[in-house]
Design a protein around this nucleic acid. Structure first.
Lengths: 301, 301
DNA sequence: AGTTGCAACAGGGA
DNA sequence: CTCCCTGTTGCAAC
């Protein structure tokens, strides 16, 4: 459950389920995912009481009163699972917190993840979270103006900038796919060549795509705190290599952009600014991209 | 007179002509070429007596006793001219030092140059000179082993590394042309793909090319301390775009490599390691590249 | 024809 | 599907 929608959902569930519990037991099976030696980690976490749990970007912030924050990143994938009192003990995990009521939280990631403990007073010095940029679901900080400032003066391609957590926090290589498609932007489009209208559309598409996915409980192939999958699965172009574009029917391609893969519709997502449409000529894509948070039209019948 | 041969020649002439003179007068027409405010520059320089003058890379180091060094870089081109007592005053210059015997040194560069004054005790903190690398005409520091260490582990192209003053001090975009040609290396050849034999040849070619040019008093289109031109003008491929390669007759090309221009023989200078020559096949270039410090064969008669 | 500093980019590794 | 670090490369500036 790596990106912002899943993390938002997870943090909300943790906030409801765990708040007020006291950490009675700390079990770490993989010390390298910690930011401090095991002894220090345990000393920081054990005995603390869980306060608010929030999300920012791909990170979960769990308050451990008094004076500590537990910071969790699931990296390229993993689960944070709640185990109620008396439930069967968790199987595979890297870190487990047992609570005073017999319940537990187990954390398992299958590649790289981070379970960090920092003193709240020193949280500013935790680089990976301190450098996080705008939260796209927070309307007070994610404004069109702030978004424009972010892109201002940049010379590179649009995709890496949107995925840079220091700019906008929470977009990974999954949700970026349909965001770029809905914004009708090729991943390597130069930022300096994005028109005002395109930038406005992109701004809205980011917010609405992530919001929609969060409302659906995140990706269908990720689990929530209770092991249940999300309901978001209908990608427009993401992971649909070889299938038809829902807008124009062209065959979706999987390309390499820098070191990451991108799925694009080669006809809808263009590298240059779309030329002015002359009166009478057909629009390149007929549907309103803003409407496409809904599942794509089925072409199977 | 920008690169090492010209600077060596200039420093030697300055050492002979200026040593022992006392700076009586400082005139600065372009303050931005200084490293300190004009008042401070004057305070450091005026009244001092010239000691040894030496060269390192593209910089002239002039001792100003007691306790100061005058550091001069002519940037992309310029002159440092001696004016004997009673001679006509210099025309255009950015910086002029007048001496107690009525002679003067005028410095004029036509783009960017530096005339810096630093306390000798603080010379290590003068970044542009402190970071200079190996002197290719100093056999005790420019050894094949040191050269190999420089190239070790590098992944990029050979040309920018040779022109990096922190590695080898003194090669610019003029002398690099024939150095690469004599070493039979394409400017974008990957360092990791240079063979041992090629590296040995390159090591020698650098030293011998610069030494030969210095012995000729530098470039024919540059002036020495007395306004006289050097005698080096017979480039093998440098600035000979469209003319035949002196080795194989192929047409010399001017290409862009990164942000600089390079003149190459497309047939002699290859990007891949030269394949082993099978017995009986003709060598790609018949002349011994080590012999080519002499002028190229004339093709005009 | 020079150098610096920064942004962008690519590769290796945890 | 992650991130950081490093070195490299390109560009704009003086």
């Amino acid at each position: 459950m790596p990106e912002l929608p899943e993390i938002c959902n997870l943090a909300r569930q943790m906030d409801s389920a765990l708040k007020g519990k006291r950490v009675a037991d700390v079990s770490v099976r993989q010390e390298k995912c910690l930011n401090v030696p095991l002894r220090k980690f345990t000393a920081l976490v054990a005995g603390k009481t869980i306060g608010s749990v929030t999300a920012r970007g791909k990170w979960v912030f769990m308050e451990l009163r008094p004076g500590v924050h537990f910071l969790l990143s699931l990296g390229m994938g993993g689960d944070a699972l709640y185990h109620k009192p008396g439930a069967a003990p968790p199987g595979k995990y890297q870190v487990k917190l047992g609570f005073d009521d017999g319940s537990a939280l187990s954390i398992a990631f299958w590649w790289f993840g981070y379970a960090h403990a920092v003193k709240t007073a020193e949280i500013k010095s935790h680089k990976m979270t301190a450098s996080l940029g705008l939260s796209p679901l927070d309307n007070s900080e994610y404004t069109y103006q702030a978004f424009s400032v972010l892109l201002g003066g940049k010379k590179g391609a649009i995709k890496p900038v949107l995925m840079n957590q220091a700019h906008i926090a929470g977009i990974g290589n999954v949700y970026i796919q349909d965001i770029l498609f809905r914004a009708k932007l090729h991943p390597t489009r130069k930022i300096s060549e994005i028109s005002e209208a395109e930038r406005k559309l992109l701004f809205r598409v980011i917010k609405e795509s992530l919001k929609r996915a969060a409302e659906l409980g995140g990706l269908a192939y990720e689990k929530d705190l209770y092991g249940r999958p999300g309901r978001f699965k209908d990608f427009l172009v993401g992971y649909r290599e070889g299938q038809p574009c829902p807008e124009c029917g062209a065959t979706i391609e999987k390309i390499k952009t820098g070191s990451t893969a991108t799925f694009i519709c080669p006809s809808c997502q263009i590298q240059a600014v779309r030329p002015e449409r002359r009166p009478g000529s057909a629009p390149p894509c007929s549907r309103d991209p803003r409407a496409s948070c809904a599942p794509p039209p089925r072409r199977t019948a």
